[in-house]
Amino acid sequence: MPEQSNDYRVVVFGAGGVGKSSLVLRFVKGTFRESYIPTIEDTYRQVISCDKSICTLQITDTTGSHQFPAMQRLSISKGHAFILVYSVTSRQSLEELKPIYEQICQIKGDVENIPIMLVGNKSDESQNREVESSEGDAMAKKWKCAFMETSAKLNHNVKELFQELLNLEKRRTVSLQIDGKKSKQQKRKEKLKGKCVVM
């Protein structure tokens, strides 16, 4: 039986259509599609290393278009790290992050120790850009969190985003182990799978 407490939970927030699911699916499955399916709530799991042992990275992709305040509160209270996504093509989408950020502060209290990444997605759409990179940076400074621009479509900065986020975690050492140690991670995965079959 997998240990619930061993999971490291990342929650992705942002307005509808900014590309939350695209970022998550690009990272988890390496795929991208143009069509848009509104998300209700999805969670993906990956095996990562944490304090030199294995743990599960849980990435929860939330809804941008439905209104479930109670579910949002629950996600925040259960989350360990947060990704706040806006689209560089929509100033409105950056505005819409404010109440979410405030709610995280309210529920988590001391946010300085909590990994939060502000993400400007769709950096490839330079023609439609409404929010400059410097503005995102300024907002991140104000919120005392990290900042990055990404493109899920071009696979720009996606892995880096998740690695950076985990690096921000100071309470434990979490790592995706992307370079070099891949084979080791692979082995562990297989070991885990083996276990499942036995069960």
Binding site: P2, T39, I40, E41, D42, T43, Y44, R45, C196
Partner: peptide, 16 residues
């Protein structure tokens, strides 16, 4: 209704 469908690794998607 909303419904969660799980994958073998306990990932899930919520469908309507």
């Amino acid at each position: 209704i909303f419904c969660r469908v799980y994958m073998p690794d306990h990932s899930y998607v919520t469908i309507r």
